[in-house]
Design a protein around this nucleic acid. Structure first.
Length: 156
DNA sequence: GCCAACGTTGGC
DNA sequence: GCCAACGTTGGC
């Protein structure tokens, strides 16, 4: 099993939005970066866990935990001319963009802020904390996962 | 709004 | 294949 961190702008799609979806599930659509796509298409497995990260907002933070609940399949928005994520180069026969479904597991209370992550020993190498890191989906090591989880327990 | 750090595009 | 120009991301 692998661990991940997935970014989303809460103004577009937040952890609460995911919880409100039918069965607490949603396709992780709209990813238009090849590296992030490859992680979903090639490396994610049903049962993997991911931090749901809120980006581009007043307080960037890990807001919750989600689980990967599907194998990778084509992102339907690439075929939809009405979608902001439409890709004219994609066809049903040769899709370009792939995604997985994620299911709400829990909301962290409180959120683990970016500032807090930066201050925490053991997380120095975390991909999201690296200078200039913009990838919307990044792998998280088991060690990093445990350290972040411990932060939430401490807060209780 | 600024800007650093990337990724993508396209001319050559 | 190089690389300049341009677009995007996302923290601040």
């Amino acid at each position: 099993m692998n661990y991940w961190l997935m970014k989303s702008e809460p103004s577009a799609f937040s952890i609460d939005d995911l919880k409100k979806r039918p069965a607490h599930k949603s396709p992780w659509d709209g990813v238009r970066n090849y590296q992030a796509r490859n992680f979903m298409r090639d490396d994610m497995r049903r049962g993997d866990l991911a931090f749901f990260y809120h980006s581009s907002c007043p307080e960037p933070a890990i807001a919750g935990i989600v689980q990967v609940v599907s194998e990778a399949y084509p992102d339907a928005t690439q075929f939809d001319p009405g979608s902001a994520y439409f890709d004219p180069k994609a066809t049903r026969e040769a899709p370009i963009w792939w995604l997985v479904d994620v299911e709400f597991q829990q909301k962290l209370q409180p959120f683990i802020t970016l500032l807090q992550l930066r201050k925490t020993p053991g997380l120095e190498e975390m991909m999201i904390l690296r200078r200039g890191s913009r990838l919307s989906i990044t792998p998280v090591t088991e060690e990093e996962w445990r350290i972040v989880e411990a932060l939430t327990y401490l807060a209780c």
